[in-house]
Amino acid sequence: MLDEQAALREITAALEESGKLTGPVTMETHILQDLNFDSVGAIDFIMLLETRLDTIISMDRMAEIETVGDLVRVLVSDPSLAA
């Protein structure tokens, strides 16, 4: 499984790829408010991250995700992601 730092690095890289990286990203960064995503953009970003990591974040888990930290926790608990 990914560790927290690796997950954070992947999220940062995915944000850069989607053109949304405007400053440092922390566990407290709020995905909608701080990264200027609307709900549709946030889903597109999640899909981009899924493709990068070759994994799936199911829709019921998406409901848990508000901050980058929430997203990190979802990724680190994904058994399909090798460290």
Partner: peptide
């Protein structure tokens, strides 16, 4: 059921997700 989205009209993304599942 567990719900997964695939990219709109993208059979390759669908294939990739089915492979993971």
């Amino acid at each position: 059921a567990q719900v997964t989205r695939f990219r709109h009209n993208d059979p390759d993304d669908l294939r990739r997700r089915l492979r993971i599942l």
